[in-house]
Amino acid sequence: MRTRFWHYHSRFDAVETVTRHAMNQPPFKAREGRVMNFLGVAIDPRVFPPALEPMTGKIEAAPMPNNWHADLAEWGAAFRAVDLSGPRFTMIELGCGWGCWMTNLGVIARRTGKSVHVIGVEGDAGHIEMAKQSLAENGFAESEWTLVTGIAAGRSGTALFPTQDQPGGSWGLEPRFDAGEEEAQNLVASGRYVALPMIALGDIAAAEPRIDLVHIDIQGGEVGVVEACMEVLVEKVAYVLIGTHSRQIEGRLFDLMIAAGWELDMERPAFLDINHPVPMISVDGVQGWRNPRLF
């Protein structure tokens, strides 16, 4: 049966791209206490226990058309960015969580003979520790990655980020940018939020002459970052992969990116649950944009 995850549009063959990278690897074995994905990446089940604990000690099949983490549209577009990169693959993952895209894309880039530098920005300190563990466990030297605790934003400043007792308990935590001074002090004093630096993309990318991929999954803040950072995106970034969190956001991104000369390379709209007075997103959308000026 062709599920809804097959319904994407792309300028390239996503099935061939994912299949090629899944097969282009040395043999690997299952590992006790870990899930091995289709690329040979070892994943700690505590990243997402409901899906991963039953798979512990097993090897996961390729996502045709999806797995517990992402679908063919997102995997394909991410791998496409690696394919389009030169001898050095550099990426930034905004909202990096446990370092999923940093780890997986770094692994396939190394496997194709490229040097690697992967950069992640994340607000949850527990998730930062997960990302460090994932990168180290999958063979990355500290010189190959940079992790920054903060909130990806269109400008510098300070914002509030919610706390949680158990890392991995929620992957959809949303920062607060609008709290007044008194409210912010009360929220931090309650222990429910921490104050973190807002980190502009231009600051993150300052040391890099070229970024092969920026992956953006920041719970509804996509438009603000893209709009505020368009100059650095156009100048330095070859490919942008965005997880979208509403149809309204998707339309605004179309306007912004097309007006700035980007080419839509992959698109799957967000899935809606319409059994509510206001339709709700059930699955985030995917947009992959290619910068023709850098090719």
Rank of each mutant, 00 (worst) to 15 (best):
R2I: 13
T3C: 13
W6A: 00
R11I: 06
A14C: 11
T19W: 03
R20G: 13
H21R: 11
H21C: 09
N24K: 09
F28Y: 14
R31D: 00
L39E: 04
V41C: 13
R46E: 15
P54V: 07
M55P: 01
P63C: 13
N66F: 14
N66V: 15
H69P: 02
D71F: 02
A78E: 02
R80V: 00
A81P: 12
D83H: 03
D83W: 00
G86K: 07
I92G: 01
L94H: 10
M102C: 14
M102V: 06
A109W: 11
G113M: 07
S115P: 11
G126H: 12
I128P: 00
S134I: 03
F140R: 10
A141Q: 12
A141R: 10
S143G: 15
L147D: 03
V148H: 03
G150R: 03
L160A: 03
T163A: 02
Q164P: 10
G168Y: 05
G169Y: 09
G169M: 10
S170D: 15
W171V: 02
D178V: 09
G180L: 05
E181Y: 05
E182W: 05
A184H: 07
L187A: 11
V188H: 03
A195P: 01
M198P: 04
I199Q: 02
I199H: 03
L201C: 01
G202T: 05
R210N: 09
L213A: 08
V214T: 04
H215C: 08
Q219L: 10
G220F: 12
G220T: 12
G220M: 12
E222F: 10
V223A: 13
G224W: 03
V225D: 14
V226Y: 06
C229I: 07
E235I: 04
K236S: 06
L241A: 00
L241Y: 00
I242G: 11
H245T: 05
R247F: 13
R247N: 13
I249N: 12
I249Y: 02
E250N: 08
E250T: 12
E250D: 12
L253W: 06
F254P: 02
I258K: 14
A259T: 15
D265G: 05
L272I: 08
D273R: 07
I281N: 04
I281L: 09
D284C: 13
G285C: 00
N291G: 08
